[in-house]
Design a protein around this nucleic acid. Structure first.
Lengths: 210, 210
DNA sequence: GTACATTTAGACCAAATGTACTAAATTTTT
DNA sequence: AAAAATTTAGTACATTTGGTCTAAATGTAC
């Protein structure tokens, strides 16, 4: 029965999302699945191992989605669609971002790995920005390091929007998600050219004031 | 001896900062201070009570500082100075921001209180922006709700820059702090007018490219 | 059907934690 | 100095947790 392993991953994810990593023990997970505690340990020796597997799961799904995303002709729309999809996926594994610092403290290997992934992500945004500039949708830098700063701020937003939502937004999932995607997009707005802003208003659904 | 109570608060703060709230028990705090754990419990019945006291402490200090801050003639410089001071204070109680979501989950009262403080903070930023616009340092809104979004993004940055720094920046405290203050200020940059940008370059220490 | 490997459950242990209770020590008040 | 209040320490207990060990159950290959 390979099914047990999958049930554990699924159950653990749900418990983590609902109660937070720190408040969930291997015993609680086992109890919620109505299997013995030692059975769970047979499949995953520690909580960290479980978290690592879930992280791999998340990365795998994210990778697949990025490949599947058909190329939008318009870059602004493409960015929007990418984020809509990506944010939804992340939400499914939201315990990971809510307890990010806790997890990183407990698991040195995961921390290192996370830093590696981040450098990739950072480069992706760098390229995205260069493309936007190349297509005349975004203005160039106004001072040295301006876009390096922008990317760092994007990083903070990406890492913690879910944590923030947990504290401030108790509404329904769909609405919250949509709001934060818009919030993400709004980071770019003031750097866009007239042409870029036109696209922004068209696709993001906020009307310009003139 | 009232001193014990203060020593406990100080010691708890340091342990929380170093190891994270979830990994620090009342017993550990007592041991680090070389007092009996029942002695500690005599002063603070639970960990939550301890955290609430530390939160009050933080609010009190922040309030005093805000009053003390002499009025800068220049608003941009004033904002910079306020943030330099505020960020440093927050850093001293950084466990609070690093384990924000964990604490909010454990302590419903503190969560509500935090939400109240946030509405005040939000209003402050709203006024700050209005003043900047009034002085011709910042442009008006380009679409309805643009600055409401800006304020929410500022909120996320303010709440989680320390958490982010803990993951990505292992450097020395002073340098990290300075970097994140600059990062904070850079949020405003693209909304500034020519006049505002001039002040920005003057005070923040980055040179414009023309 | 038998032998083997995999999976599951139950019992047990040591460490840590919150909590309660009692008594001693110290400070403050009278 | 005596009495009262506050502060501190010691002990003990129930719970939870991660972890180990053994044995039963289940599936698989021959």
């Amino acid at each position: 029965m390979k099914k047990t392993k999958e049930r554990i991953l699924q159950g653990a994810k749900e418990l983590f999302n609902a109660q937070g990593v720190a408040n969930v023990s291997l015993r609680k997970i086992a109890a919620s699945l109505k299997i013995s505690h030692s059975n769970l340990i047979y499949h995953f020796k520690t909580k960290n191992e479980l978290i690592e597997h879930l992280h791999q799961e998340l990365l795998h799904i994210a990778k697949l989605e990025n490949q599947k995303l058909r190329q939008e002709k318009n870059r602004i729309l493409g960015l929007l669609r990418t984020m809509e999809k990506g944010f939804a996926t992340l939400w499914d594994y939201r315990f990971f971002m809510i307890d990010l610092n806790f997890i990183m403290k407990e698991n040195e290997a995961l921390h290192s790995f996370f830093l590696e992934v981040e450098t990739l992500r950072s480069k992706m945004y760098q390229e995205e920005i260069e493309c936007l500039i190349g297509e005349g949708l975004m203005r160039g830098e106004s001072y040295v390091g301006e876009y390096a700063q922008l990317i760092k701020r994007i990083r903070i937003f990406s890492d913690y929007w879910i944590a923030s939502a947990q504290i401030y937004d108790q509404g329904e999932y769909q609405r919250v998600l949509k709001e934060y995607v818009q919030l993400f997009m709004s980071i770019f707005y003031p750097y866009l050219t007239v042409k870029g802003k036109k696209d922004f208003h068209l696709y993001i659904g906020v009307k310009g004031l003139g």
